[in-house]
Design a protein around this nucleic acid. Structure first.
Lengths: 338, 338
DNA sequence: GTACATTCTGTTATGGATAACAATCATAAG
DNA sequence: CTTATGATTGTTATCCATAACAGAATGTAC
């Protein structure tokens, strides 16, 4: 009845082997200053010999810090999710934290359930990378006890907001198209309840208005390439459409595909600008003009902020928005001569 | 000197409020059978009133199970990583586990360090989605105590291997191109030390040999679109190249881009097949013929396996390989008439 | 009414580490 | 030589929940 996997040795076992108290072992492993060199070496040798590994849960229990961060993302596999998650991982590792990831659907129950799991898990801080919508108040109650950073401002939680200046992103893209000579710019927006999406939409509209251009009705997708394709099938049928700002590169791929199928050439007939600059944007056909925003960087900054917030709970916590950059490639050109 | 974030109430606080012992609270929360209904309700009310949440770490400490799975991925943001991670999350949630994610570079130190962090964190099981190469033996030592599943067989750990039949994937792709009438098929492989990559390479070669075709020298990329582009610049200069099997869709995008820039039309001049069927494959220009393998599904299956292994440490654990499917789209066609 | 099983609840020990305090020893200062 | 000071190590209490055991209360069988 031998178990294949058993608990390893505990600190007291190391202590016994080294002929010291458990506390001394703890001191050695935590690099406390006042330990005699010879003792340190004996303890290290014993720990090594027994292949001892400190039990982080016991440690967390007594210190009250788990050295773990929770990150909540949506359960969809898009570029922004995965690169943000990667940034969080990397940032957390550098800061000496491990990451507990949970995913959730968009419903209020799913979101609060996910946050709840993180809180129960005893994380020291939480990064929420999802629009909370009507789950906002419930989640805020849950996170009373845990420092929290958001990467989506739609919940109205501007405290601890880390992200990219979406207003600027849309301005850059829209202006680029206008400067090329297009009369106006159409917009395939993201879902209405994402703050990023709403910010881009508002800013696109404002830019057109300020330039005294007609503001065409906006279309909406759900970030998926397929939704871009659907919207592209609509826009491609309208000859007056010569410039389109698509709220994400992934949707832009779909838009371009649909336009191509309808016989509209990119960029000769229609110019398309995406947002994000995903890895594949430079390698599409034609290469995609887009507005770069690094989600990985956002993830890292979220961690940095969160770690500061953990160390200093009462601190000021103004929004931290990075500036996106326009990347001009082959999918934009002056409008066809009428 | 008021702390903004403090520990919440403990079980004893709930017990006091409900006028029972802590053990009874524990029983109520764990749905033990022998608790009187009136007591249960009083406890529930008290817990609710105090907004009590059970401390999972204390729980894990005494039960010896953290209900947490660790997953190790590489610190690169490609499609396979993120969709596998998503599958793991979803599977874990369904199985009642939370996920601890760590990323690592390819070096032996980074890999062992990452696994080490997971073990220290007290996870109940580990999913390794990275080629271990020379870190294999060290890692195996580390995972003696923790049930482990691999999604890459290069480490020689075929025990607990979950993935997709890569031999079949390459066979399907290669045969498809041969059946279209191409004289032979060129291959842009992945990095040499990934087992997936090696399996595809071997199987591509075997398929050509069995068909009595010339086996051209293979090229290697690193899974990135950029590496595909570089290889494409080479292949596009050779007029005899009419069919290319690229080991991942992301590299295939790069290959196609390079071929286009060199004036070779897809699929009229050159046919290209990818592997993976990423979300964007259907929306590229032209849509990409590829071999579909669901990494998300692999992640889920890895969790299922792992959970079984945790419950039954001594169990048989043969490789579990899913069958990939050929998806024909617009990037393949018969060779140009010579 | 006695003997025994069941149901419900409480008490104590435990998991593995660290904080706070106490004790010892050596060295420096007076 | 005495006292203060600092370095080094050990002891005890604690974090929070659960397992194992124990006790009380109720019901059942004869």
């Amino acid at each position: 009845m031998e178990r294949k996997f058993n608990r390893g040795p505990a600190m007291r076992d190391v202590a016994r082997a080294a002929g010291v108290s458990a506390q001394t072992v703890s001191r050695v492993l935590s690099n406390h200053p006042n330990v005699q060199e010879s003792t340190r070496q004996r303890v290290m040798a014993a720990a090594d010999e027994l292949d001892y590994r400190r039990n982080n849960m016991a440690r967390a229990l007594v210190t009250g810090r788990s050295k773990t961060l929770g990150v909540l993302t949506l359960a969809t596999n898009n570029y922004s999710r995965s690169s943000l998650a990667l940034g969080v991982e990397l940032g957390a590792r550098e800061a000496g934290y491990t990451v507990n990831s949970v995913t959730s659907g968009l419903s209020a129950e799913a979101l609060t359930g996910a946050v709840s799991r993180l809180v129960n898990q005893g994380v020291d801080g939480i990064i929420i990378a999802a629009p909370l919508r009507d789950a906002a108040s419930t989640v805020r109650r849950l996170t009373m006890r845990v420092p929290t950073v958001n990467t989506d401002g739609s919940s109205g939680i501007s405290d601890g907001l880390v992200g990219v200046d979406q207003d600027l992103a849309a301005v850059l893209a829209t202006r680029h198209l206008l400067e090329l000579g297009h009369a106006t710019v159409w917009h395939v927006a993201g879902p209405e309840d994402w703050s990023d999406s709403a910010a881009r939409l508002g800013s696109w509209r404002r830019t057109l208005e300020e330039a005294g251009r007609e503001v065409p009705p906006e279309l909406h997708g759900d970030w998926s390439p397929e939704s871009g394709y659907r919207n592209g099938l609509v826009l491609g049928r309208m000859p007056e459409v010569t410039a389109i700002l698509v709220a994400s590169d992934e949707m832009a791929f779909g838009v371009i595909r649909a336009l191509s199928e309808l016989g509209r050439r990119i960029p000769e007939d229609v110019s398309v600008v995406g947002i994000d600059d995903i890895d594949l944007a430079a390698y599409s056909n034609p290469p995609l003009t887009t507005v770069r925003q690094s989600f990985e960087d956002t993830g890292r900054r979220a961690v940095t902020h969160l770690v500061e917030l953990i160390a200093n709970p009462g601190m000021d916590n103004p929004p931290d928005l990075a500036a996106p950059v326009l990347v001009v490639r082959g999918s934009t050109a002056p409008p066809p001569a009428a």
